[in-house]
Design a protein around this nucleic acid. Structure first.
Lengths: 155, 155
DNA sequence: TCTGACTAGTCAGCCCAGTTGACTATCTGC
DNA sequence: GCAGATAGTCAACTGGGCTGACTAGTCAGA
């Protein structure tokens, strides 16, 4: 059963993530929602967790240039998912704030990701899924220690 | 401990894969090797597992157009990792064959991916890693059933 | 056996999300 | 108050994907 080829696990991680991404995308289409890309989802999540974040903060977290982050922000702002507000103390900076629409979308996305989790749990059992969750966390904590980390996969 | 936010697991999968990809990339640089992209690795793996494959086969597996697959193949052929040979029976087609250099690179990549696995195993234990492996496989088998699947993540 | 539909692969041109580089406006430490 | 750092934007480029149009070869049927 466990004829595990050395080096196979990372590939399986990627394939699994791809499968879940496909599911999310299909569900969004099914619901008639704009299928934002995962990169957008990361923006939402980051802003929800870090109120007062700026474009530069976001760029650092996503590990892209500030120009690229700025472009994404412009796009999401045009679509009404977030707003730029003037920074209270720094005249150069703008803080990024999710709109109600943005928070609602984030909530929906979480629910749809959770569908994939439930699907997985149905196959392997909820306790095993909890174990996987803990194991992933343990690995990331070990690799990155305290300081936070790159969210976006790179190809 | 298991205050698992619903929908968090897919993100953790992506972050873990990203961490392992970063590790691979860093090791390749360290060894003075050309840091081919993961997409190239998928080509190598597919060709190693499917001798006699053509560009069209590859395109189907990677879920890209044949034009795109052809471009990647040209690149890898220019770098000496694979060769195009005339198809024995079909005058239109070419079969793709890994060179010794290509097989050597694939072997190295597997070793480097395995380093990440070992690192993970050191944190959570080998038995837990085996469990994760089995759980990933179980999910993919459930989602895709028999017919094989998309390897390449999509953004 | 010829012909029409299909298939393998390439060429050319476009698109999009990222990049680098140059710039303005503002902030901060000496 | 000035020099250097920082937030953000504009412009031009790149790379890896795409569509569309094409050539060359295959194959099935009348």
């Amino acid at each position: 059963m466990d004829d595990r080829r050395p080096g196979e696990v990372p590939l399986l991680l990627a394939m699994t993530f791809r499968a879940m991404t496909d599911h999310l995308h299909a569900r969004l289409v099914e619901l008639g929602r704009e299928p934002l890309r995962p990169a957008h989802g990361y923006v939402f999540r980051y802003l929800a967790d870090h109120p007062g974040a700026t474009v530069v903060d976001l760029a650092a977290r996503l590990d892209v240039t500030k120009q690229s982050a700025s472009k994404t922000v412009t796009e999401l702002a045009d679509w009404g998912y977030l707003e730029r507000r003037s920074h209270p103390t720094d005249g150069r900076a703008q803080i990024l704030v999710l709109t109600e629409r943005g928070r609602e979308y984030l909530h929906l996305a979480d629910e749809l990701w959770a569908e994939s989790e439930k699907q997985w749990a149905a196959v392997i059992g909820a306790d095993r899924l909890d174990a996987v969750h803990a194991d992933l966390r343990a690995y990331l904590d070990h690799v990155y220690g305290d300081h936070r980390i790159n969210i976006r996969p790179v190809w």
